[in-house]
């Protein structure tokens, strides 16, 4: 539709072929709609969440051409021809991605609301940097807020997943992350 044909109170519609999780989707939406809105409301990919819709919380993060992007600030109209990856695109068949596996096992997802945004951000990090330091992980995720976990389980989950992805199957997350620290004076009974 030409913008000249617009009626008062209506918005210009655009049509775009969006490539999401390796699948093409023909979509039509108002020109000002964010990628977040189109993913959730047009494609029913509700795994991507919203926490503020103003670019403040990181919850809506998706990958565009492998890079983390806040989908609430990205115009969907500008996403044609780009590879969009959401949390729904992380599994391999019926198997979880190592990050998903580690998050589920460690309890890095409590309420799970910030989790999709953090998972894809971590995925982008590990694809670029298979053996990140703790500081590098923190800096990659500094824009993603989580109110439940206190962040530690997320960091430990990413380190565990990174090891698995490098083929280091001997790596295990620190025992005290799961059982707490051995009580002082008990000679490390938890060790």
């Amino acid at each position: 539709m030409d913008s000249q044909d617009q009626k008062a109170g209506e918005h210009q519609q655009v049509f775009r072929l969006l490539n999401v999780n390796g699948e093409p989707h023909q979509t039509g939406f108002s020109v000002h709609h964010s990628l977040l809105e189109v993913l959730r409301e047009q494609l029913n990919l509700t795994g991507t969440k919203h926490g503020c819709e103003l670019g403040e919380c990181g919850t809506c993060t998706v990958l565009i051409d492998g890079q983390p992007v806040l989908s609430c600030l990205e115009l969907a109209a500008e996403c044609e021809g780009r590879e969009i990856t959401t949390v729904e695109g992380m599994m391999n068949g019926n198997d979880l991605h190592p990050l998903q596996e580690a998050f589920a096992d460690l309890g890095a997802a409590q309420c799970g609301y910030c989790t999709p945004g953090i998972l894809v951000t971590a995925k982008a990090l590990l694809e670029e940097n298979p053996e990140p330091t703790r500081d590098e992980i923190v800096s990659a995720l500094a824009g993603n807020l989580c109110r439940c976990t206190g962040y530690h389980k997320i960091l430990e989950g990413i380190e565990w997943a990174a090891a698995k992805m490098r083929g280091d199957n001997d790596y295990t997350p620190p025992k005290e992350a799961i059982y707490g620290d051995p009580l002082p004076g008990e000679g490390g009974s938890h060790a």
Partner: peptide, 23 residues
């Protein structure tokens, strides 16, 4: 003993349906 939460898989795959995910 540590075990995976019963909702663990849903929460890491985007399958958990929060209220705004319903239509």
């Amino acid at each position: 003993k540590p075990f995976r939460r019963v909702d663990g898989r849903a929460k890491v795959t985007g399958q958990t349906r929060f209220a705004d995910d319903l239509s």
